[in-house]
Design a protein around this nucleic acid. Sequence first.
DNA 1: TCAATAATAATAATAATTACTATATTTAGA
DNA 2: TCTAAATATAGTAATTATTATTATTATTGA
Lengths: 135, 135
Amino acid sequence: MTALKYSRQRESIKNFLMHTSSHPTADMVYLHVKETFPNISLGTVYRNLNLLADMGEIIKITTPDGADRFDGRTTPHYHFFCNECGCMMDLDMAPLSQINEVAGQNFEGEIDSHTVTFYGKCVSCLHHDTKATAV
Amino acid sequence: MTALKYSRQRESIKNFLMHTSSHPTADMVYLHVKETFPNISLGTVYRNLNLLADMGEIIKITTPDGADRFDGRTTPHYHFFCNECGCMMDLDMAPLSQINEVAGQNFEGEIDSHTVTFYGKCVSCLHHDTKATAV
DNA sequence: TCAATAATAATAATAATTACTATATTTAGA
DNA sequence: TCTAAATATAGTAATTATTATTATTATTGA
C-alpha cells in the first residue's frame, strides 16, 4: 500500500548491483555506496536491499558463510560458492526448466521456484594451492 | 588429529537427528535434548552439530530464514522450504547425477557437490489459507 | 585406580540483521 | 514556486544466531 518514494541512496545501491557480478554482501554494498554517500548508514543499505529484493529487482542469496549476498541479475541462473575463499560466481548453464514439475510430482504442496548452488574450489584457489592435489 | 572422545550428549544429538525428518535448527535440537539432559548447554549443541557435520554424519542446511538447520539423512536428496511457515521437508525425487559435470563444462574451477532447494507453499499452509487462491 | 585428554556447562563475545526515532528529502497539489 | 503530508535517512540501540573462553567434569587407555 505504502507509496514508494525515490531516494538517491536506493538508486545508487541498485545501480551498483546492476553493474557488478561480485554478489556482494550488505556490508560490501555499504562500503561501495559510502564512496558516493559518505554518511549513508548500514541500516539504509539493509532496508533498501530488502525493499529491492521484495520488489523482485534484485535477488537475495543465502550462503553458508553467514552473510547473505545480493545479485542484480534477476533472470534464472545458478551459483557457485567456493568453499575455500567464500567467493560466489554465476555459472554459465541452462536453467533446469522442468525441475519444478519433477519435484512436484510426489509432493502435495505448491512449488514456485528453486535455487541450485554448486560447491567446490574456484580457479584462483586451485592455482594458489601450495600442495599439488593428487587425483 | 585430536582424538574424538565419546559423549552421551553427542550421541543423543545424533540419535535425535537420525530419527526425525523435521530438519531442526540448533535451538530445536537443544530443546529436545534438554529433555534428557536438563542442563546441557546450547554451546554444546552447536559444537557437536558442527563436529558431526564436519565428520559427514549429519548435514548442515543453509536456509533463508536465519537459523541453519540440520539433517540426519546424509544420502543425496533435495529440500523444500515453505515461504509461509518456514518449514523444511525432504523431496522424493531422483538426484541430478550429471549436474555437477554439466555445471563444470563452462567453468574453470572444481565442482564437488551441489544443493537444490525448492520454494513455495507447503500442504498445510495451502489448506490453512483463508482466501481461495485463483489460478 | 590414575593421569592425560577431551567434553561439558556457563558465560561472554562477535557478527549479521532489524528496530527505533528525530531529522531530512521527496512529491503532489495549491 | 511554496507547502504540507508522507516516506527516507542517519545514527543508534536492540535482537538473533553463532562462536569463543574457561573452570570443572567425564572418558579412556595404561
